[in-house]
Nucleic acid binder design. Structure first.
Lengths: 196, 196
DNA sequence: ATCCAATATGACACATGGTTCATGTTTCAT
DNA sequence: ATGAAACATGAACCATGTGTCATATTGGAT
C-alpha cells in the first residue's frame, strides 16, 4: 500500500477531482462492493493505476467521500438555519435545508448510509458531530425556556431520525411530494411535540 | 446455480436451521461482504458444500433472513400493541416493543439496514409493509378524531424514523439508557406532537 | 438386513477485482 | 532547450471466495 500523493499541479489536481467525483457517482449508484476501481477510473477517464497515485485504497476514497458529505452538509445546514430567530424555526429550516441537500446529492446520501457497513469509524465520526451539535442546541433552547423540558439527547436522535428517514423516503423511495409540503407536515408534529 | 432443496428429514431440517442461524450471526457481525460461506459453515459445523444443498446462494440466505426479521418483528409488535386502548398508547407500546426486539436481535437489525445495499427489493418489501400498516393506523386514528389532523404518510415515516434511529442508537452505538427511560422521553414528544 | 434416497463432504475450478510496477509521457523551472 | 519531478499507463500479479462436483456416509422404509 503505497502512500498517496497530493497533487502539485493543476493537471494533477484536476485528475484527483475527476477520480473523486467519479467515485461519488459510481459508488453512490452501484454501492461500494459492486463499484470496481475499473468502473471509477473509466468514469474518470484515466487508467486504473492513476487511481493509486492519489488514493491509497478503495477504502480511503470512500472515507474521503464521507468526510466531504459531512463538510458540505454542515455548510448547507448552517446556511439554512442562520437566519432562524428561535429553535423551532431553526428546526423547520434545518429540515428543509437537509431535504433540499440530500435530494440534490442522492449519491452522497447513499454513501453515508453505506458507511455504517463499509467504514463504521467514518460513520460514527460523521454522525457524532451532528448528534453533539443537535443535543447542545436543544439543551440550550430548553435552558432558555424556549421549548418543553425534556431529554435533549433522545430528542436529538429523534429529530435526526425524522430527517434521515424523510430523506430516505425522497432519495431511495423516489417519493415526489414537494419538499415544502413534507416540511409543513413534519413541522406540525415537531413543533407541537417540542413547544411549551 | 443448483436448485436449493427443502429438508425431508429431521436431520436435514436441523442442518438447515444451523446454517441459517450461523448466517444470522456471521453476517450480522461481520457484514454481508466480509462474511464468507466458509465462515458461515464453520460456525454451523458443516462442510462448505452443505450450504448449497439448502441455499442457492449467499444472496438467497440473506433474503431469507430479511423475511425472517420482518415476520418476527411483526409478531413482536402486534403482541406489544394488542392491549393498547388507543393510538397514542399503541405508539408508546409499539416503540417499547420495537426497542426491546432490536436489542434482543442486534444481528437481525444490522442485516435489515444492510439490505438496502445488498438486496434493495427485500428491503423495500420489508419496509413497505410497515409503512403501509402505520399509515393506515394513523389515518384511522385521524378519521376517528383521536389525534390532530395531519398527513398520515409523512407521520408514518417520521415515527418509523424515530424508532429506527433510537434502535440504532442502542444497537450500533451501544447506548445503555434503559429502554423505559428512552420510551418515556420519546413518547413525550410524540404524544404532544400528535394529540389534538 | 438391505437398499435407496437424502444428506454430507471438501478439494478445486473458476471468476473477480484490488493493488503493484516497470515503463512512458507531460509539465515546468532554470 | 533541457533535465528532473510530476503525472499517467495498463498489463499482470495475487489474494479471495463463490459455487461445483465426484464421492462418501447416514438413516429410515420395506
Amino acid at each position: 500500500m503505497e502512500a498517496s500523493v497530493t497533487p502539485k499541479t493543476a493537471r494533477g489536481e484536476a485528475t484527483r477531482r475527476a477520480i473523486l467525483s467519479a467515485a461519488e457517482d459510481v459508488i453512490g449508484m452501484r454501492g461500494f462492493n459492486d463499484a470496481s476501481i475499473t468502473d471509477i477510473t473509466r468514469e474518470a477517464g484515466c487508467a486504473q493505476g492513476t487511481f493509486y497515485i492519489y488514493f491509497k485504497s478503495k477504502d480511503e476514497v470512500f472515507a474521503e467521500l464521507v468526510v466531504e458529505m459531512g463538510r458540505l452538509l454542515r455548510h448547507a445546514l448552517s446556511e439554512a438555519t442562520e437566519a432562524a430567530p428561535d429553535r423551532l424555526s431553526a428546526e423547520k429550516e434545518g429540515l428543509r435545508g437537509f431535504l433540499t441537500f440530500v435530494i440534490a446529492h442522492p449519491n452522497l446520501y447513499r454513501i453515508i448510509q453505506e458507511a455504517l457497513f463499509v467504514n463504521p469509524d467514518a460513520y460514527r465520526a460523521y454522525f457524532q458531530t451532528f448528534a453533539d451539535g443537535y443535543r447542545e442546541a436543544l439543551a440550550a433552547a430548553d435552558a432558555g425556556g424556549e421549548i418543553r423540558p425534556g431529554d435533549p439527547d433522545v430528542r436529538a436522535w429523534m429529530l435526526m431520525g425524522i430527517a434521515k428517514t424523510l430523506g430516505e423516503r425522497a432519495v431511495v423511495w423516489g417519493d415526489e411530494t414537494p419538499i415544502d409540503d413534507v416540511v409543513e407536515a413534519a413541522h406540525d408534529m415537531i413543533v407541537n411535540g417540542l413547544k411549551r
